[in-house]
Each structure stands twice: as C-alpha cells, then as structure tokens.
Simulated assay, not measured.
Amino acid sequence: MTVAIRSAIPFRTWPIVAAGMLVAIAVGAALVGRLAGIGTVAVPVSPPVQAVELVFSDHRDGSIRVADAADSRLVLTVPSGEGGFMRGVMRGLARDRKMRGLGPDLPFRLERRENGMLILLDPATGREIALGSFGPTNLEAFSQLLPTKDGST
C-alpha cells in the first residue's frame, strides 16, 4: 500500500531562488566595492611636524612618570588617582607588549601630524592610536607632553 502525503500549502521555489540571488548580488557588490575602494573612506597619511620619544614608568606610590627618551628629562608626573585616560591607554599598550614578550624599555613616540592629528605610536608593536578620537579633554592629556615652541613641555 502506497500512501501519498500531500501538503496543504503548495511549495514554490521562486522565493528561495530570488532570496539566494539577492544574497549573491549583495556579497558580490560588497566584494567589488572593497577591492575597487568604492564607498570606502581613507584618511591620507600626513607627515609628522613635531615628535617626541617618551618613556612611561609606574612607581610604588601609584604615580606615572613620563621622561623624554633622548635625555631622560622628567616631562610629567601623573599623581596616583589622576590621569585615567593616559593610564588606560598606556596600560593597553603595555599589555600588548607583554603578550608579545616585549619589555617596557623601548620608548613610545608621540607625534603631531601636519593635519593636526596627535598620534601615539608603539614602535615595538607597530600600534598607532589617534588620540583625537577620544575627545578634546583626553587629547589634552597627551598634547601637554609635546614640547612647546620655546622648547619646554
């Protein structure tokens, strides 16, 4: 005995084919856009106009001391409980170095670019942080580390 089971709802294949074609077209358009650079935003690389190499060190009293790598001159001392943004950025960069088995002895490079951007670079790992992305107050925390026109910081 053969039993025929028939669905009460007729199955149509065209919606599935149409959905598949829509997905394929979307993926194809994204691929073409990515490879051709259509619809992407690129910030042109701007040369540095001012730079300083800095060494950051933690101390037992909870302070952070920032020294110029060229002459070991103290640039700034951030007291314990202050400078949360600077502490967070430097903690993240230090963690990245530690995960790669690198020590804290190499200096970081702080650059002001021709387009006005302030960039913190870690030459040991190749990481770059655009500090202006975090707002003017946080930008000021690092811009005070750059020497002024008279040579002081």
Rank of each mutant, 00 (worst) to 15 (best):
L131C: 00
V52H: 04
S133R: 11
V41K: 13
V32C: 10
A18D: 11
I5M: 12
G20P: 13
P136W: 06
V78T: 11
A67N: 03
A29V: 15
L145A: 04
T2M: 00
L76G: 01
G92F: 09
P104Q: 14
T137K: 11
R34T: 09
A36C: 11
T40C: 11
I119F: 01
T77R: 11
V49W: 00
Q144P: 01
A19W: 13
M86F: 00
G132F: 04
L106S: 05
D96Y: 13
M99S: 07
R127M: 05
G101V: 01
V43D: 12
S80G: 07
A19N: 03
L102Y: 04
L74Y: 04
P79R: 12
R97C: 05
I9W: 08
L118D: 05
R100A: 14
G84F: 13
R127Y: 07
F134D: 04
V41E: 11
A8M: 00
T2V: 01
R87W: 07
L131I: 03
M90R: 13
I129Y: 04
G20Q: 10
V66E: 02
L131D: 02
V66A: 04
N115P: 14
R73W: 04
A18K: 09
G132I: 07
V17A: 08
E111Q: 13
L146D: 04
V3T: 12
L22F: 15
G101I: 09
D122M: 10
D122G: 01
V23I: 00
V89N: 09
A24E: 01
T125S: 13
V45T: 06
G39C: 12
D122S: 07
A130N: 14
Q50W: 03
M21D: 00
V89R: 11
A29S: 05
G132C: 07
P48T: 02
L121N: 01
R6A: 14
G81L: 15
D96I: 01
N115F: 13
L54Y: 07
A8Y: 10
V27M: 15
L106V: 00
A29L: 14
D61T: 00
P15S: 09
P47T: 06
G92Y: 09
G126E: 11
A18E: 07
V75N: 02
T40W: 10
M1R: 00
A26L: 14
S63K: 10
D122E: 05
P10Q: 00
R113W: 13
P123K: 14
S80A: 08
P47R: 02
A29D: 08
V27Q: 12
V55R: 10
F108A: 04
N115A: 15
G88K: 15
L102H: 05
L118T: 01
R60V: 00
V78R: 12
E82L: 12
A26M: 10
